[in-house]
Amino acid sequence: MSKVRKWTDSYVKFGFTKFIRDGVDCAQCLHCSVVMANASLRPSKVSNHRDKVHPQRKDDNIDALSTKRARYDCEATLPKFGFWPEEKPALQSSYEVAYRIVKCKKPHTIAEKLIKPCTEKMVELMIGPEAKKKIQQVSLSNDTIRRRIDDMAADVCRQICCEIKQSTLQASLQLDESTDTALESQLIAFARYEKEGKMKEEFLFCNTLPTTMTAKDVKAIVDSFFFK
């Protein structure tokens, strides 16, 4: 069984704040809002993120980071830029809508043009105008839905990569070629690896293939993914 790690306030010095997902402690970057999985909740992982993604933040002092964390968690200054603390139901509602939109393969604009107006009207009629005001706090713009989907996809990818690294056996990779609705060639990759004594297979990535599709081109795409 994978070890469940606990949050410690010492991670603040690396530019992270506590984030709880499904009752498990995770770490959220104060600079880019990326949420790292529980498996990455250790000094070497969080410091590596800071050094690679935010090298200019290495010299930030602990007092400045603590102040930024307090503002991030308590004062709700980031909602102006589309970010909400995890305690806010509006954030979870926004992600839930984005998840269902991408699952049903609907355009991102459907949230702002159809779902939100319908929800506001139903809530106003069934519960009252005060409840409608709370629904209006849920951000469902086209850009927000796009960002939510990108965040969820990146988070799933990070979790799979963490599981692959923790696998006691070498992972195997299966590649396939397909085409999208625009008839562009896509390279699809699946990974099979061991987790908790069982074999697990997950979708890893999908990247557009160039005009040429030699073995060298395919390998370059795979190498680029693992390098990132």
Rank of each mutant, 00 (worst) to 15 (best):
W84C: 06
L125F: 05
Q166H: 04
R158F: 04
Q159L: 11
K165C: 10
K134S: 08
P55Q: 13
S141E: 14
L78S: 07
Q170V: 05
K132N: 10
V102Y: 00
T168S: 11
Y99Q: 08
A90V: 03
M122Y: 07
P117K: 03
D143P: 00
Q170N: 10
P43L: 08
L169E: 13
K80Y: 02
I115N: 11
R158Y: 03
P107V: 04
E163V: 00
K58W: 12
S66G: 15
V123M: 05
N61Q: 09
N48D: 10
A76G: 00
D51Y: 09
Q166N: 07
I115Q: 06
K133G: 06
R69P: 00
S66R: 14
P43I: 02
E130H: 08
Q166F: 03
A111G: 10
I101D: 02
Q166I: 06
A64H: 05
L41S: 00
P43G: 02
K103A: 15
Q170L: 10
H54R: 07
T119P: 11
D151S: 08
S94F: 06
E75W: 01
W84S: 01
P85D: 01
P89W: 07
I160N: 03
F81E: 04
E87V: 11
L114N: 04
Q170Y: 04
L65C: 01
Y72Q: 02
H108S: 11
S141R: 13
K165H: 10
P85V: 01
N61S: 09
I101T: 05
L65D: 00
K105E: 15
T168F: 07
I149T: 03
K113H: 09
C118D: 07
M126F: 14
K88V: 05
L41I: 02
S44E: 12
V156T: 10
D63N: 14
G82H: 01
H108F: 15
D60E: 15
R147K: 15
E130G: 08
D150Q: 06
Y72S: 05
M152A: 12
K105R: 13
T109H: 15
I135S: 05
K133E: 14
Q159S: 12
T168H: 12
P107Y: 04
A98Y: 04
R100K: 10
Y95I: 10
F81W: 03
L91P: 07
K133H: 09
H54D: 00
P89E: 08
K134I: 07
Q137H: 12
K116F: 12
K121T: 11
E130M: 11
L114W: 04
E96R: 10
P117C: 06
L41R: 00
K116S: 15
P55N: 15
D155R: 09
P89G: 08
Q137W: 09
D60P: 00
K105W: 07
S167I: 02
C104H: 15
S167H: 02
I62F: 13
E163N: 08
P43H: 05
P129N: 11
S139H: 03
S94H: 07
P107E: 11
D151H: 05
I110H: 04
